[in-house]
């Protein structure tokens, strides 16, 4: 019975929300736009208490039973209690409790500025290191697709930053030639022949482009190429994924509100 009620609620609220988007009936629209969403916020708010209880339970258990790495749990609990103390009990400023959270001079504000902000920024900054190690590993000339990925990745990396503007036209041309050879390298059986051809191309093409007065073309400016990659192929890919995601979302939602997708309730 409990399970049936859950299914009924999912189906009923699902269809009600969908109809609220199309039917012009103010109590229904009001319920969908305001009441239902506020209910969700209230339930989420109460769930926050459950989260806190769970956190305390988990770490107190770890400490009391001296499980592996229980010492870290002390730090977690200390952090939690300190923020509670400065958020709800100790003020440290002239304004009342509550508004003190955003008042310069209060202990909580000091902690936000000097502990929370730098820690958050540090975690985000770690991304730079992980991006470096991931790109170092991933950008390999394994096959045609991986090479294309590498080429666009390199152009985006250089083109996005001011240093990309300093690259002269002939160097861009040399990069193009190298990358072109990276793409077609597998087709050469005789590697010496390929190397000779590459060297010749590196020497002849800049002279040819210069003599034909083509060196001012936007193609040889890496920031322009970067903008083109972002505006055309990246947008096309992004849109394709977006459409796929939208269709997947609709089908998934349809399965849920028609009561077919039950695994969220454990079935």
């Amino acid at each position: 019975m409990k399970r049936q009620l859950a299914y009924f609620l999912v189906i009923f609220i699902g269809f009600l929300t969908l109809s609220g988007h199309f039917i012009n009936y103010s109590p229904l629209n009001n319920f969908i736009d305001n009441d239902a969403t506020q209910w969700f916020d209230i339930i989420s708010g109460f769930a926050a208490f459950l989260g806190v209880v769970n956190l305390l339970q988990l770490h107190l258990n770890k400490i009391s039973q001296k499980k592996d790495n229980w010492r870290y749990s002390i730090i977690t609990l200390l952090g939690f209690l300190i923020m509670i103390f400065f958020g709800f009990i100790y003020n440290g400023s002239s304004v009342a409790l509550g508004p003190h959270l955003k008042k310069e001079g209060s202990a909580f504000y000091w902690m936000f500025q000097n502990i929370y902000l730098p820690l958050g920024a540090t975690m985000f900054a770690l991304l730079a290191f992980f991006v470096a190690s991931a790109s170092y590993r991933a950008f390999k000339i394994r096959n045609f697709e991986a090479t294309l990925l590498l080429i666009s990745g390199v152009f985006l990396m250089i083109g996005r930053v001011p240093i990309g503007q300093l690259i002269p036209w002939w160097m861009s041309l040399e990069i193009y030639i190298c990358l072109l050879f990276a793409l077609i390298a597998n087709r050469f059986k005789d590697k010496k022949k390929m190397l000779t051809l590459l060297t010749l191309s590196l020497l002849i093409f800049p002279i040819l482009i210069f003599s034909l007065n083509l060196h001012d073309l936007a193609l040889f400016k890496i920031p322009n190429l970067q903008e083109w990659i972002m505006d055309v192929p990246a947008t096309a890919g992004s849109r394709a994924i977006m459409i796929g995601i939208a269709l997947g979302t609709i089908a998934q939602s349809y399965r849920i509100i028609t009561g077919r997708e039950k695994s969220i309730l454990g079935d």
Partner: peptide, 24 residues
């Protein structure tokens, strides 16, 4: 801050080149 980002990007490109030579 853009100089820092420029140098970091350039360094990553250098890593990628080394990675590929080694891979080859």
């Amino acid at each position: 801050r853009m100089s820092a980002q420029s140098i970091a990007h350039l360094l990553m490109v250098v890593f990628i080149i080394f990675g590929n030579i080694s891979y080859y």
